[in-house]
Simulated assay, not measured.
Amino acid sequence: MSEHDAFEALKRHAIEENERAYGREARARHGDDAVDAANERLASLSRDEWDEKGQLERAIREQLRVAMATGDPAGEPARELARMHARWIALHWGEGRYSREAHRGLAQMYLADERFRAYYDTAAGEGATEFLLAALESYLA
Score class of each variant (00 low, 15 high):
His4Val: 13
Glu95Cys: 09
Glu137Cys: 09
Gly127Trp: 03
Glu16Lys: 12
Ala141Asp: 15
Arg65Glu: 04
Arg87Val: 09
Leu56Met: 06
Glu76Val: 00
Leu45Val: 03
Ala59His: 04
Arg61Pro: 01
Ala141Leu: 10
Ser44Tyr: 08
Ala59Thr: 03
His4Glu: 15
Arg27His: 06
Ala37Phe: 02
Ala34Val: 07
Val66Phe: 06
Gly96Ala: 14
Ala123Asp: 02
Asp121Ser: 02
Arg87Asn: 03
Tyr110Asn: 03
Lys53Glu: 13
Leu111Glu: 13
Met109Cys: 08
Ala14Gln: 10
Gly125Cys: 00
Asp72Ile: 01
Arg47Val: 11
Pro77Phe: 07
Glu137Tyr: 09
Glu130Asp: 12
Gly23Ala: 10
Glu137Arg: 15
His103Pro: 02
Glu17Pro: 04
Glu3Asn: 13
Ala43Met: 12
Ala34Lys: 09
Gly96Asn: 13
Met1Glu: 12
Glu25Tyr: 15
Leu81Trp: 01
Glu137Thr: 12
Ala6Cys: 09
Trp88Glu: 04
Gly31Cys: 03
Ala102Glu: 13
Ala67Asp: 04
Asp32Ile: 06
His85Thr: 07
Arg41Tyr: 03
Glu17Tyr: 08
Gly94Arg: 05
Leu81Val: 01
Lys53Phe: 11
Val35Phe: 06
Ala74Phe: 03
Thr122Phe: 08
Glu49Tyr: 05
Gly96Tyr: 10
Leu10Thr: 11
Ala128Val: 02
Gly54Gln: 14
Gly125Trp: 01
Met68Leu: 00
Glu8Tyr: 10
Ala90Met: 10
Arg58Cys: 05
Ile60Trp: 00
